[in-house]
Deep mutational scan, measured.
Amino acid sequence: APRKVEMRRDPVLGFGFVAGSEKPVVVRSVTPGGPSEGKLIPGDQIVMINDEPVSAAPRERVIDLVRSCKESILLTVIQP
């Protein structure tokens, strides 16, 4: 079942996760003590960023979407 995860941007750590460059977009790592800790799990597949589906989106679009979130971000993720 999809999970909705909302995180506030940390001034130092950002959102505190690293996503892979393949499709679908998969969470590779979560920064300890960062905003994503306890919310995202490595292996989570990101299916939506805010209200935009990203399963088939180019990597550049995913990066732009994350960067455009100055304060908070809403991710919809699934464990494949």
Rank of each mutant, 00 (worst) to 15 (best):
residue 54 V to N: 00
residue 73 I to N: 04
residue 47 V to Y: 13
residue 21 S to P: 06
residue 78 I to T: 15
residue 73 I to W: 00
residue 26 V to A: 08
residue 19 A to I: 15
residue 19 A to E: 09
residue 28 R to F: 07
residue 7 M to V: 12
residue 44 D to E: 06
residue 66 V to M: 14
residue 72 S to M: 08
residue 6 E to I: 14
residue 63 I to T: 10
residue 14 G to K: 05
residue 3 R to T: 04
residue 55 S to Y: 04
residue 29 S to I: 05
residue 32 P to D: 09
residue 33 G to S: 09
residue 62 V to G: 00
residue 28 R to H: 09
residue 45 Q to G: 04
residue 79 Q to L: 06
residue 71 E to H: 09
residue 46 I to S: 15
residue 41 I to Y: 13
residue 37 E to N: 08
residue 22 E to W: 04
residue 37 E to I: 07
residue 46 I to T: 08
residue 79 Q to D: 14
residue 34 G to L: 03
residue 11 P to E: 08
residue 26 V to W: 04
residue 28 R to D: 12
residue 12 V to D: 14
residue 59 R to D: 04
residue 40 L to H: 00
residue 76 T to D: 09
residue 70 K to H: 08
residue 31 T to W: 06
residue 32 P to I: 09
residue 36 S to K: 00
residue 26 V to I: 13
residue 55 S to P: 12
residue 69 C to W: 03
residue 57 A to M: 15
residue 67 R to G: 12
residue 16 G to F: 00
residue 27 V to F: 01
residue 14 G to S: 05
residue 39 K to Q: 12
residue 57 A to W: 15
residue 42 P to D: 10
residue 42 P to I: 09
residue 35 P to T: 03
residue 42 P to N: 10
residue 52 E to F: 09
residue 36 S to R: 00
residue 52 E to Y: 11
residue 26 V to E: 12
residue 60 E to V: 07
residue 49 I to Y: 01
residue 70 K to R: 09
residue 33 G to H: 08
residue 26 V to T: 14
residue 2 P to V: 11
residue 9 R to Y: 09
residue 40 L to P: 00
residue 41 I to P: 00
residue 76 T to N: 14
residue 6 E to D: 10
residue 36 S to D: 01
residue 59 R to L: 14
residue 22 E to V: 10
residue 26 V to D: 07
residue 62 V to A: 04
residue 71 E to V: 06
residue 19 A to P: 12
residue 61 R to M: 10
residue 63 I to Q: 14
residue 16 G to R: 00
residue 16 G to I: 00
residue 28 R to E: 15
residue 64 D to Q: 13
residue 60 E to C: 10
residue 49 I to H: 02
residue 37 E to Q: 12
residue 35 P to C: 03
residue 5 V to F: 09
residue 10 D to Y: 03
residue 33 G to Q: 07
residue 23 K to F: 10
residue 28 R to Y: 07
residue 70 K to G: 08
residue 65 L to H: 06
residue 52 E to D: 09
residue 9 R to W: 09
residue 76 T to A: 07
residue 51 D to Q: 12
residue 27 V to H: 01
residue 33 G to V: 04
residue 27 V to Q: 01
residue 59 R to N: 13
residue 7 M to S: 03
residue 50 N to E: 11
residue 80 P to M: 06
residue 53 P to I: 15
residue 32 P to S: 12
residue 75 L to R: 02
residue 20 G to P: 02
residue 67 R to P: 01
residue 53 P to A: 12
residue 3 R to G: 02
residue 17 F to C: 02
residue 23 K to N: 15
residue 45 Q to H: 13
residue 29 S to V: 07
residue 75 L to I: 08
residue 1 A to K: 06
residue 51 D to T: 09
residue 47 V to E: 09
residue 27 V to R: 00
residue 59 R to T: 12
residue 34 G to V: 00
residue 31 T to F: 07
residue 51 D to S: 11
residue 70 K to S: 11
residue 71 E to S: 10
residue 46 I to C: 07
residue 24 P to V: 02
residue 36 S to A: 15
residue 39 K to H: 12
residue 78 I to E: 15
residue 3 R to W: 02
residue 9 R to D: 01
residue 22 E to A: 09
residue 59 R to P: 13
residue 8 R to M: 13
residue 62 V to E: 01
residue 51 D to E: 13
residue 55 S to F: 07
residue 51 D to V: 04
residue 8 R to Q: 15
residue 15 F to R: 01
residue 61 R to T: 12
residue 73 I to E: 03
residue 75 L to P: 06
residue 64 D to C: 04
residue 40 L to C: 03
residue 24 P to K: 02
residue 4 K to L: 10
residue 77 V to S: 02
residue 5 V to P: 01
residue 16 G to A: 03
residue 45 Q to E: 12
residue 77 V to D: 02
residue 76 T to P: 02
residue 44 D to L: 02
residue 54 V to E: 02
residue 9 R to A: 10
residue 60 E to M: 11
residue 31 T to A: 11
residue 24 P to S: 03
residue 48 M to R: 11
residue 72 S to V: 08
residue 52 E to K: 10
residue 59 R to I: 11
residue 12 V to L: 14
residue 53 P to Y: 09
residue 48 M to N: 08
residue 35 P to G: 02
residue 58 P to S: 15
residue 8 R to K: 15
residue 33 G to E: 08
residue 40 L to M: 06
residue 44 D to K: 00
residue 30 V to C: 08
residue 64 D to H: 11
residue 15 F to Q: 02
residue 36 S to I: 00
residue 79 Q to N: 11
residue 47 V to D: 09
residue 30 V to G: 00
residue 30 V to D: 01
residue 3 R to Y: 06
residue 28 R to G: 13
residue 25 V to P: 13
residue 60 E to Q: 14
residue 22 E to P: 00
residue 41 I to L: 15
residue 6 E to Q: 12
residue 16 G to C: 00
residue 41 I to A: 14
residue 54 V to S: 02
residue 51 D to R: 10
residue 28 R to M: 10
residue 50 N to W: 06
residue 8 R to I: 14
residue 48 M to W: 07
residue 69 C to Y: 06
residue 49 I to D: 01
residue 2 P to G: 14
residue 64 D to W: 05
residue 60 E to T: 12
residue 50 N to G: 14
residue 37 E to W: 09
residue 12 V to M: 14
residue 75 L to G: 03
residue 68 S to N: 13
residue 26 V to S: 08
residue 25 V to E: 01
residue 75 L to Q: 03
residue 8 R to F: 15
residue 24 P to Q: 03
residue 78 I to M: 15
residue 61 R to N: 11
residue 65 L to V: 08
residue 70 K to L: 04
residue 1 A to V: 05
residue 17 F to M: 04
residue 45 Q to L: 07
residue 27 V to L: 03
residue 47 V to S: 08
residue 71 E to T: 11
residue 31 T to L: 06
residue 41 I to H: 15
residue 22 E to R: 06
residue 66 V to W: 03
residue 71 E to R: 10
residue 53 P to F: 07
residue 74 L to V: 15
residue 63 I to P: 01
residue 22 E to N: 07
residue 75 L to N: 02
residue 64 D to K: 10
residue 41 I to M: 15
residue 38 G to V: 03
residue 43 G to W: 04
